[in-house]
Each structure stands twice: as structure tokens, then as C-alpha cells.
Amino acid sequence: MKKVFFLFVLVALSACKKDDTTTELTFVKPVHFPEPTYKFENNRITRAGFELGRILFYDGDLSRDGSISCGSCHLQSAAFTHHGHDVSHGIDDRIGSRNAPPVMNLAWGKTFFWDGGVHDLDLFAIAPIENPLEMDETFANVVSKLKKKAVYPPLFQKAFGTTEISGPLVLKALSQFQLMLVSAESRYDKFRLGDTNALTADEKTGLELVKTKCGNCHAGELFTDDSFRNNGIQHFGDKGRFRITLNDDDAYKFKVPSLRNLQYTAPYMHDGRFLTLDAVVEHYRKGVRQSPNIDPSVSNGISITDDEKQKILTFLSALNDENFIRNKEFSEQ
């Protein structure tokens, strides 16, 4: 009798869950992706945490005058980059020094920023908030502004079980939203998971060319090995990774970006100097310049025929993930 009752309750409960429009949310690793690097045990993803993070991501009060949110320079339609801007424009239209990278697949990031200055996603958001060229605010003041907004205490209660808003919880919520921004549904991914028709013949050839000619750095399912390299572009003042390590061997090295969603994330390179993918490939074919710490894999250029270039470019379009830029869950509500 007792058992039957218990079973009945369980069925009733699961029925409730099904009816609920706001289904619970978990981070699901795409089967062909490697294990994520983010320590989820320190920040369990919940729907409430994700939704709070989403509101924070789109809240202009993270900036000094309320004008700039994270979403201002990381637009979903541009795979969370600042489309069309070589370097991003922050508060008072101040010009940043680097191109806004996509907020995508961050659960696999070992370091963040073009120079890898932040080693933990949970510590990331403080940097754009406090950068005078971006949001020009202090993190402490952001927290005190959020405390005064009536909307937040119940959301923190739902997400973290406390109405006490603190810096660490703001950061954890922002991480939850950003960690869910997984892009793994391109035509390449469908091909990778067994749909042999997902790629055309040319794209399949292009994929093999990318593997052999670009795969040294743009490696694995993320199409980046997350390392820092000098790829032979002409260098000006920005010494990249050197700024973080002060090691001469790191001068002019920048994080290898992913090849996913390139259609949406133009322009390219840490300063957005190349407007088209064609110009990027041309750089590796003919434009490489010698400079300290140039990566051996590009120091003599990469030999790519015209035909190969076309196939590479064709394949790269198969790495665009339309679901990622259209997913309403990721948009400002």
C-alpha cells in the first residue's frame, strides 16, 4: 500500500514537471566535444541561475552610465561579437584596443581574452566592467547598484537561495549564462555525428585541407588549441601575451581563435584588421611577415592553391551554426 502510494506521488510529481513550461536546465556536453575545463562542481547550472545570468548579461547598469551591457559588444546575431567593428566601442564611444571575441564554447576555455589574462571564467566579467574603454565602472559599485534594483533580490533567492547580492554570486550567474552558450550544431557537427550528407563533396575536401593546413593550431572539435601564437601578421604596439607574462618569448603572441561561426564574427584577428575570410587566407598564403616568436608552422607561409582556398572557404561556411545565433534562450528577453 505504502509503495503504491509512493509510486503515485512520483508519477504526480513527474507530471507536474512535464507541465512546467520552464524546464530545468543542465549543461550537456556535445558527444563529440572533449571534457570541459570549467569546474562545474563549483557552480552547478540551474535554470534560475542561467536566467539571472542572462538578465545581468543584458543589464546596462554594469557600466558607469547605464549605456553599455555585455550584450552591447557581444551581439547574439554576430555570434556574440561586435559585428562590423574592428575594435569594440565602449562607453562614451571610446575605442577599445582589441576585437571583441565571441562568447561561445567558453566551458572549454583554459584562459580568456586574446592574451589569456584571466584564467577562470568566474573572474572574467570584472575586467570589461572596470576597463575605462569598455564599461568604466568599479565592480564594487556594480554590486551596490544591483542591490538597489528591486528585480534582483528574488532572482538571487531563486538562483542561489539568498537575497544577499554579492560580487561572487553576480560572477557565478554570469558564468552560468555564458557557459550555456554552446555552439555545436553546424552542418560540420551533423557530419561529424554521422550524417554523411551534411557536407558537400567540396566541403569534405575543404575539411581535410583545414585539418592538414590549419589543424596544427585550429585543432580538435573546437577548432582551436587555445594556445598563444604569433601568426605572422604585421605587429604594431600590442605585444599580446607578453603583457600578461612579461616573458619575451611571449611577445606578439595572441590566442588562437576558433573557426566556428566565422560568417557572423567578421572582422578577424585581435585588432579586426582583416575584413574577409579571403583576406585571412591570403595572409597565410602570401602575407606572413617575420617578427620575434613567429610560429614555425606559418613562418614560411602556408602553401594553398586557388582551388584549395575555395574549398577551405566553402568548408568554413559549414562551421556556421544558425541555431546558435537564433536560439531565443540566449537573447535578451
Binding site: N43, D122, V142, V143, S166, G167, P168, V170
Partner: peptide, 13 residues
């Protein structure tokens, strides 16, 4: 982990 950074170690406080 940032959640363990309280008091004078909290970057927001």
C-alpha cells in the same frame, strides 16, 4: 574559486 573570496579578498568589496 571566487565564491571563497570573502571580506578583504572579495574583488567587489
Amino acid at each position: 574559486d571566487v565564491s571563497k573570496r570573502t571580506g578583504i579578498l572579495d574583488p567587489a568589496a
